[in-house]
Write a protein that binds this DNA or RNA. Structure first.
Lengths: 217, 217
DNA sequence: TTCTCAATTTCGTGG
DNA sequence: CCACGAAGTTGAGAA
């Protein structure tokens, strides 16, 4: 903690005049310089950075160097308020719920969440124009393209799915497209019916239960 | 700094077991909890968050509450290593160079960077489905839609441009689309040729020289 | 508020 | 190592 001036050059370039900030340097090389406000650091380097320090004209200069891409962060402290050094013990598990992946996994584990007889084939199948969340086959053997959204599905989501489905329909006119989300905006609803696509309501909560149940087994 | 356990619930949800971390709380409500490694905080709240603290079973509980969206971050410190409090004076100017805007400006100042006879009409022109970086007219009077990228252009960038160009081609089939970037991914190159779009190599460095030269005059 | 897009995006995943 | 897409993306700018 102290007063410093900063310059950065690499993927972009920036300068910052003298002011009081907090600098954190972690043992993996990650470093973060924070101004007194805001969520994001004003300057930083990611893990893997090589830190070097030296004195220069009565100032403490801290440089973070990185290759691929080549980047240099230079912080020049002219006044120090506090220096803290130590090591932290932290081996705990971080668990994040409520991601789109949970929904995908639940559908794969229990396809009847969507409909009876559905057989998922592939998650995140590659496609010349992007990715399909899930590719499946229904009980009548038709291809089903599933686009999964964690939040209310928008017009944009419907269009994205249409991009994929229309491609499939060139070779397989019976191909279905199902947008899976907890809810659907009114505009998206209209669009889906115009594009001959379907919607299946599915809430994150249900998916979490399915995935949790599978993990117990 | 100390040992804590964390839970978060809001747009998503997460838990983190006991471990030693650094917590920064800024006066605007922004708070960041950092593990001993990595660039990103493991949990956080943005500026505007209301911070409340209380003791509970011998632990220091710090809660960050936020509305729109409703989010709660709860940090329970069971052991403290250090507490630091103070205010920082920082009113310096932050200047960032080397952005996409520099490239846009350079093209506007010196259109021959793209091709002879090009006449730029408008930067960031509105469009029903987004924004066009630059709209121009070539020496033969054809509309040219320019999509500018600071880094290597991807398939995604080509598709975004195609969205605009195909719209223009409905009324003006001769309309051109030019993707401007320092380089082009192989997949994007293929896509461009399929979609009848063009690529023009332009490096940030050249643009910076052009803009710097213009500023001197 | 909403939408749209840039970002030193970062991060993970798969080829 | 690239390429692609998600992210509690964040942040800025305009309607």
């Amino acid at each position: 903690m102290g007063s410093c001036a900063v310059s950065y050059k690499g993927r972009a370039a920036s300068t910052l005049g003298e002011g009081e900030r907090i600098l954190i340097i972690k043992s993996d090389g990650a470093c973060l310089l924070h101004r007194p406000y805001g969520y994001k650091p004003v300057n930083w380097q990611p893990a893997g950075t090589v830190i070097r320090t030296h004195a220069e004209d009565g100032a403490l200069v801290i440089e973070g160097l990185r290759r691929t891409p080549r980047e240099v962060l230079r912080i020049e402290f002219t006044a120090l308020k506090t220096i803290l050094s130590g090591s932290l013990e932290d081996s705990a598990q971080f668990a994040m719920y409520a991601t789109e992946r949970v929904m995908q996994r639940a559908i794969f584990l229990r396809p009847q969440l969507i409909e009876e007889g559905l057989k998922p084939l592939k998650i995140e199948k590659e496609h010349p124009r992007g990715y399909i969340d899930i590719l499946a086959v229904d009980r009548e053997g038709r291809e089903v393209i599933l686009e999964v959204k964690r939040n209310e599905a928008t017009k944009r989501d419907a269009l994205q799915m249409y991009k994929y489905v229309s491609e499939y329909r060139l070779t397989n006119p019976a191909a279905r497209g199902v947008l899976v989300a907890p809810s659907l905006s009114k505009e998206a609803q209209l669009l889906l019916s115009q594009l001959n696509l379907e919607f299946k309501r599915l809430r994150l909560e249900e998916c979490e239960r399915v995935v949790a149940g599978a993990d117990e087994e």
